[in-house]
Design a protein around this nucleic acid. Structure first.
Lengths: 99, 99
DNA sequence: ATAATTTGGTTTATAAAATAAACTACTTTA
DNA sequence: TAAAGTAGTTTATTTTATAAACCAAATTAT
């Protein structure tokens, strides 16, 4: 008896920019603000806000430090983030013809 | 040279309820308001608003009539809607590890 | 040396979207 | 004929996304 109904989509991941960030972070050990910004094409403000949300949800870890003399924000995905991402993919599947 | 960057997600489809509606309509000839409401679990108000948006985008056709004496709103997907749905799926893929 | 520009962000304001609540018009049932 | 139910729409509220403005420090140009 296959589950036919639509699974709810985690609103934290169902956002273009946050999804892009998670998509990047899931494939690397860590990535900094500047890199995430250039890869996603986001504005600094938007990125800053969305990183905060992901961090507050415990989906990513954000470490602030310095690279030489310049401030640097380094992000990495957490286990919880990895789980959420996987669940989101699963949920998405329920909206599309299987396979 | 694979296209590695994130493709923009059509904001009209990147919405849980509108996506669910499209997901239903892509698999049937047509579906009425009551059916869409029960399948998606949406409130009437929300469904009404989102159907309007899909119609205004030309993604669905909405026909208002009567079933017996009761008003009936029948929806069907358009070619444009089908195309948009396919493009959305393609775009989504760019956020996930291929396959 | 200091003024202008750039870097790496944050904060605040605005626009857009989703959702819920209230309402309408009509039908059916008690 | 009054109450309740059906099939929606409209309006108001809340939430979200985005952009604009700002800040501190570093770098570059004068």
């Amino acid at each position: 008896m296959p589950d036919n109904s639509f699974k709810p989509l985690d609103p934290l991941l169902h956002s273009e920019l946050r999804l892009a960030v998670m998509s990047i972070l899931i494939g690397v050990d860590s990535a900094d603000f500047v890199y995430l910004k250039s890869e996603t094409g986001a504005t600094s403000g938007n990125l800053s806000v969305q990183l905060d949300k992901l961090q507050q949800a415990g989906y990513i870890e954000v470490k602030k430090g310095f690279k030489g003399k310049m401030p640097q924000t380094v992000c990495s995905i957490t286990d919880r983030g990895r789980d959420a991402f996987a669940s989101y993919v699963e949920a998405l599947r329920s909206y599309f013809p299987t396979q």
